[in-house]
């Protein structure tokens, strides 16, 4: 608990809150783009870039490592697209290949750098499982600033994101550039991944994107509230996971963040106000009792029986 008392720890917590909020929101976009696996592939693909950036510059400054991570993740994304368009391999297989090859490459490079490099390298290991405690004040500033950029891009374009995710063809018909939205989406996805990997680690970063969004889905039927819910759950998981990981010396942050977001998920799955198992069970019971069905439901059945 001593760490929590230091002012640095409070700054770390604040930046983890921003990161969690940003991840939760981007996770909602990824959820409705049906690209949850892509975020996993991208975060694994970031590792070689981190190591190479360090090997070239010899310094462990977050902006430099982030840049390396971003380039490497974008190359990964490009390779996925290239494999899909130039072969018969399906997207999920392509992502699986890129994910494992890049991660393997990253670990290999890390081993080499650790053998040959100076004493300053041990911190890089933190990029695998995450080490929020290793963040210094400038890391905190970088992470929070970029996280706020991500949050504002989602918030300012809220109605455009909704249209783009729900009906891209109609969006295009209205003159919204779907290509721009796709680039923006890839941009914010990569950004939130690369600012998060130091604290959460490349292996588990995607959990902070996926789990809050999926959990929020159980609480609401509105896209706005799904974004807000995922932001709250993501921010909460980031902070709780970090607090727990700072209780022991050298404890990794990523696993604790995942476990806390998983706790949010279980609560949502059971008690979520819209699709939670308990609510659904209660609704079934009351429907049987009252025997009054919603007109829309009834019509749905008629149309279904009429057959397509």
């Amino acid at each position: 608990m001593t760490l929590l008392l230091s002012p640095n720890a409070w700054w770390v917590l604040l930046s983890m809150l921003v990161l969690g909020v940003a991840s939760g929101m981007i996770g909602c976009l990824a959820y409705w783009k049906r690209q949850s696996l892509m975020s996993d592939a991208l975060s694994h693909a970031a590792l070689p870039g981190v190591v190479i950036a360090f090997a070239i510059t010899g310094v462990k400054i977050l902006p430099v490592l982030i840049l390396g991570a971003a380039i490497s993740a974008l190359i990964g994304a490009f390779l996925v697209q290239w494999v899909v368009s130039s072969s018969r391999i399906k997207e999920d297989t392509a992502m699986g290949i890129v994910l494992s090859v890049f991660f393997g490459l990253g670990i290999m490079l890390l081993t080499i750098v650790n053998r040959t490099g100076g004493g300053n390298v041990s911190g890089l290991d933190g990029f695998i499982f995450g080490q929020a405690a290793s963040m210094v004040r400038t890391d905190v500033y970088t992470m929070s600033a970029l996280g706020l950029v991500v949050i504002s891009i989602v918030w300012l374009g809220f109605k455009e994101w909704k249209l783009f995710l729900f009906d891209p063809a109609f969006a295009k018909g209205l003159g919204l550039s779907v290509r721009l939205m796709n680039s923006l989406y890839s941009g914010v996805l990569v950004l939130v991944i690369v600012i998060g990997i130091q604290a959460v680690g490349v292996i588990l970063m995607s959990a902070l994107l996926i789990i809050p969004a999926v959990s929020a889905r159980y609480w609401t039927h509105s896209f706005k509230w799904m974004l807000i819910g995922a932001a709250v759950i993501g921010g909460g998981s980031g902070v709780i996971g970090t607090v727990i990981s700072t209780m022991g010396k050298g404890w990794p942050t990523g696993p604790f963040i995942v476990v806390s977001s998983a706790a949010f998920f279980v609560v949502s799955l059971l008690f979520g106000a819209q699709k939670g198992l308990v609510i659904v069970r209660l609704q079934q019971r009351s429907r049987i009792k009252s025997e009054v069905s919603v007109p829309a439901e009834r019509e749905k059945m008629v149309v279904k029986e009429g057959g397509y």
Binding site: W32, L163, F166, D167, M226
Partner: peptide
């Protein structure tokens, strides 16, 4: 489109006015 998307009828119609 995916009709599971979390939104309501009015909101979808509003998209025509974006």
């Amino acid at each position: 489109v995916d009709w599971d998307f979390p939104t309501d009828a009015l909101d979808v119609v509003m998209m025509g006015l974006y």
